[in-house]
């Protein structure tokens, strides 16, 4: 049950996108998402959809994994689509009930919005499927490093370290939570029935031991890190250095062509 939570959902493969520098991937993903939102008309958005489809194909990640991510946000998707259905102006009126009216413009709006969200999720899924969590945090640290010039010297490294540790401990905590749940069930705890209030109350015997054990783990980890002379990011060298290579320029060029395509279609049509 708890194991279904996917996090750090890296998919092992050796595609072009897997080999791309994670820093480049983050920057390009943000860029593409911005441009997807800049797409004004249906043609530009369809062009973006085609491009995102290509990117997903190049990633060599099975399509069902993308669909799985899509399922998780399905409620949000439906909600947005339904709300937008009533906000369209223009077009023929198809249905009118009380003060609500559905027009062709509304349907257009709703499809447009939904497609945008789908593309957004696809893009971020591409990033998380093709990049290991550790690479991601390293890349974020590297990208945020200019902040040290504005007086945030240690903060960037600390933040990246916190993210790394948090990601590392998610599976551990899930395992721990399962153990504690079983132990409390063995003592007759009822986690499955009752109303909302009862269910929330039933979580206390699980959350408190979990909290205590994470604090204990934090102390242990801090001690272990100190024993290995950890003193923050200062003077830290890396075994795996990140370098921009030809692949990164190739991928960047492709992304820029995509952005340009969206702008051109925006203007022309």
């Amino acid at each position: 049950m708890l194991k279904d939570i996917t996090f750090g959902q890296y998919y092992e493969s050796n595609s072009l996108l897997h080999r791309t520098d994670p820093r480049a991937k983050i920057v390009l993903m943000i860029l593409l998402i911005v441009f997807i939102f800049l797409a004004k008309n249906l043609f530009a958005l369809l062009f973006a959809t085609a491009c995102v489809g290509c990117i997903a194909l190049i990633s060599r990640v099975p399509f069902r994994l993308y669909i799985k991510n899509m399922k998780a946000i399905l409620p949000v998707l439906i909600f947005t689509a339904v709300i937008n259905l009533f906000y369209g102006d223009g077009g023929r009126i198809l249905l009118e009930v009380w003060k609500l009216r559905i027009t062709t413009g509304g349907i257009y709006n709703s499809v447009f919005m939904a497609l945008r969200i789908v593309l957004l999720i696809f893009m971020s899924s591409v990033l998380t499927y093709t990049t290991t969590p550790n690479d991601l945090t390293d890349a974020i640290e590297s990208l945020l490093s200019p902040l040290k010039f504005v007086g945030l010297k240690g903060a960037v490294h600390t933040l990246a370290m916190m993210m790394t540790i948090a990601l590392r401990f998610i599976p551990t905590l899930i395992e721990e939570a399962e153990k504690i749940m079983n132990a409390q069930k063995a003592r007759g705890a009822d986690l499955e029935s009752g109303g909302l209030v009862d269910r929330v109350k039933a979580l206390i015997p699980i959350l408190i031991p979990l909290l205590i054990s994470s604090v204990r783990r934090a102390y242990e980890l801090a001690e272990a890190m100190e024993c290995r002379c950890y003193n923050g990011g200062e003077g830290k060298t890396r075994m795996k250095q990140m370098h921009l290579s030809n692949t990164d320029f190739l991928v960047s060029a492709a992304a820029i062509i995509m952005c340009a395509g969206i702008i051109i279609l925006n203007i022309l049509l």
Binding site: K179, I180, Q184, P209, I212
Partner: peptide, 30 residues
């Protein structure tokens, strides 16, 4: 589960109540 008790490995990690009394009482209360 109350007729067949199971004590897990490292059972002390499942303690959660404010007092020893309350923690021992958790099972019988259930």
């Amino acid at each position: 589960r109350s007729k067949i008790g199971l004590v897990f490995q490292y059972p002390e990690y499942q303690l959660f109540e404010e007092t020893v009394f309350a923690d021992i009482a958790f099972g019988p209360k259930n």
